[in-house]
């Protein structure tokens, strides 16, 4: 896939970058919710550098095989290893953080 295919959502300066990949299938309410929830969570963890890719499988269905995607939306933590997956629209912040193994942030 070309670098331009992957939307660069946000990048942070310090530390090694986390690579997160969010799989969606079309602009469904669940997909849009997942994108906005991911934004929010990353914003809340400003000290970590995130490299985020959003992949729409309606446009690139062949990419589903690579990360063995079944559920939509699925967020894959590619780095740091090991790979971890969080499914759903990420509306449950606590579970998303557990899934990504990010420390909860007190707002």
């Amino acid at each position: 896939m070309n670098e331009s295919d992957i939307p660069h959502f946000e990048e942070h300066k310090d530390g090694s970058a986390w690579v997160l990949r969010l799989y969606i299938a079309g602009q469904t309410p669940k997909s849009l919710a997942a994108i906005s929830n991911l934004h929010r969570i990353c914003d809340e963890h400003g000290e970590t550098k995130f490299h985020i890719e959003v992949i729409d499988l309606l446009e690139k269905p062949q990419l589903a095989e690579g990360d063995k995607i079944i559920a939509i939306p699925t967020l894959v933590r590619k780095l740091p290893e090991p790979i971890r997956k969080v499914i759903g629209d990420l509306s449950d912040t606590e579970k998303t953080l557990v899934g990504l193994q990010l420390k909860p942030k007190l707002v």
Binding site: Y23, A25, K30, A33, A34, N37, L57, L58, P61, Q62, A64, E65, K68, I69, I70, A71, I72, P73, T74, I83, R84, K85, V86, I87, G88, D89, L90, S91, D92, T93, K95, T96, V98, G99
Partner: peptide, 26 residues
């Protein structure tokens, strides 16, 4: 081969199985 490891999957909100549908469809 649909490999499902419950350990890997954390559910955080609403989802569907469109990924499976897409792969079957392909």
């Amino acid at each position: 081969h649909i490999n499902l490891d419950p350990q890997e999957l954390i559910e955080a909100g609403e989802y569907d199985l469109d990924g499976l549908f897409l792969r079957l469809g392909a």
